[in-house]
Design a protein around this nucleic acid. Sequence first.
RNA 1: UGGGGUAUCGCCAAGUGGUAAGGCAUCAGCUUUUGGUGCUGACAUUCGGGGGUUCGAAUCCCUCUACCCCAUCCA
Length: 749
Amino acid sequence: MSENKDFLRVIIEEDLKSGKYKEVVTRFPPEPNGFPHIGHAKSIYINFGIASEYNGRCYLRMDDTNPTKEDTKYVEALKDAVKWLGFDWGNSVHFTSDYFPKLYDYAVELIKMGKAYVDSLDEEDIRKYRGTVTEAGKRSKYSERSIEENLDLFLRMKNGEFKDGEHVLRAKIDMNAANMKMRDPILYRIRHAHHFRAGDRWSIYPMYDFAHCLSDYIEGISHSFCTLEFENNRDIYDWVLDTLGLKSQRPYQYEFARLSINYTVMSKRKLLELVEGGQVDGWDDPRMPTIAGYRRRGYTRESILNFCDQIGIAKANSTVDVAQLEFCIRDDLNTKVPRVLCVLDPLKITIENYEGHEEIDAPYYPHDVPKDGSRKLPFSRNIYIERDDFNENPPKGYFRLTPEQPVRLRHGYIITCKKVIKDDNGNIVEIKAEYHPDSKSGDDTSGIKVKSAIQWVSAKEAKTVEVRLYDRLYSSESPESIEDLNPDSLKVIKNALIEPAVITEKPDERFQFEREGYFYADPIDYTDEKPVFNKIVGLKDSWGKKTKATQNTPKPQAKKVQVDGEVVAMNEVQKRLFNKYINEHGLNNEVANTLARDETLSSFYEKAISSLNSPISIANIVANEVAREIKENQGSQLKFSAAQIAELIKMVDDEIISNKIAKVVFEDMAKSGKNPTQIVETKGLVQISDPSKISPIIDEVIAKNPDNLAKFKAGNSKLLGFFVGQVLKATGGKANPKIVNQLVAQKLK
RNA sequence: UGGGGUAUCGCCAAGUGGUAAGGCAUCAGCUUUUGGUGCUGACAUUCGGGGGUUCGAAUCCCUCUACCCCAUCCA
């Protein structure tokens, strides 16, 4: 776990510390209407991860309130995903549908309180009546129904006496609410549909906003984490629980940004389209960003979990670079899997001066992976190398085999090209080569220098395998539709050649094909007769990148010009005040502007200067500090008066306290409502301006920080602030900062 | 356009008045019988823009801008 805490953990630690909850209880609440993707993995990691980190619990809850969309096969997919990621949901999976009876009772209670009513408007009217984001809505005439009538209607809705859409149950909140979600949200709708778990028992089903908060409450959830798009729904969440009086030990909702990754789509709808449109081969196609897809591709749970950890949790909408995910899987597999030799695009090599056959002992792991294990690599006169590893007209910096340049066969001998054989079309079909008998790997006395070692297989012993080369599904960085699909996202190589031990010994299911990438024995299609390997991810390739980079155009990005909008003009009263502040009180434009435009501030200001003639200093504190307090308190009574602010500024003017201390005193006043003079006295905050008192403290600070002193002397002038800060800290903020600044600057010279 | 959010390096992301963390990516150098790995170093005088307050501002105040979410009987 990273050292810095994300905002969710900060909230949890505060709540635990304050005793708001004894235990952290979270839940992962997916709707079983699709396969979980890597965005769900993030949510799983957050909910299960945080719970276990704080010794709490996390439930897996299927949010199955919509019978028309959900299916038990998705329940299984969800369970598989959570389990595969290594989390444990305890005794049983929870279902919102299990709470339908309780939810119904709560709805009845709301009706009895007069807080919910049965509305009989049709769908279109409900939409019309809701208004728009800028226009208020209007309440349905049915909202006037009596409690008895509502109760009766709701019961009959439950009993299936009405058709779909005939009535709905709505909360009675506020049709004029600025938050559209609060305009009498629908709580229940009639659905004569078969529910995959509840069967045909119900003909009414609760809406998300009603079911979710109550399910959280029923389960005793403490922290209910969801994604950003539910921010507006939090008001209903709170309204339902508060209105029902479920106040103690109730859950609170917090929102974080959902995961998006470039070159990837994450919406369930788009994923479903790919599956149904046949663009991919099912939900677990290795190109899909589903957990099942990554799993089939060969990703490990550790790599996915590590990725989730690396990307962090925050509230900014962001798109993670897919390279970060690729890093995670490489990083994990690097230390785990055996290295083997596989040739994808074979080029025949005949070693003319080699007769017979031998078996080379080759370790599975490189020198820097502390694992044991080795296999026999058959070697003979006829071998294959990668077509790419020979070049007749090599570009500059090419390290592999050329007519002039010898190359090492990994774990084997050095070979030299003697003759290039071509067919009638000029294609290279074979290389005649010679090997150097005294150059055997580990026992090389030839003295020949080669620049690289390449993979190869012995023609006779090599096994034919199918290799599926997967690339990103989309070629667009932010894909919109199937137009953006990458036509080369899958290349199937039917006749790749692999060294025999991989097939006969099966030392692992994941391998690094040396110099190529990481591969996974396909868990479904692999058979001993016809082995199939999926490419998980390629190795980092600084050569390929270099050769490509020359073609890529470096695009110079013009910096965006920022246009400033019009500022709203002041009215007459404000203008008059503004002019007065500038001309009579000598305020600067900005402060005068702030004060003049805000009536609360200007009247506060007027009051304060009536008791102390220090218009500029008072204006500054009112326009800054006081303005903040007013903003934070949102209309509730301030604990301090204008006269007290004047009293505070008087002390600053008289140099009894510094500006810094004034801020400290102000915070205290705002919180406690105490008198400023009294605060200064009881806390002993009178400032220290005597250089002979400050000097030794500075010396001490300098002596304690030799590193920073050296840095400062080396030219890092920013450190002046550091030293000033340290001295101020040492004096409890009481040292006169102006004097400290001067003295420190002097001493550091 | 009303309300709710968010802006810190190419991509994530710490930081809440006193030295702009870290990871990915990128670029160098060393190591290497994988153009892999590992190691070392470089990479934000500046935090969406502009003002203001302060000895000192990414952090406080004012103001402007951009982007996301909300008008499903979806979740």
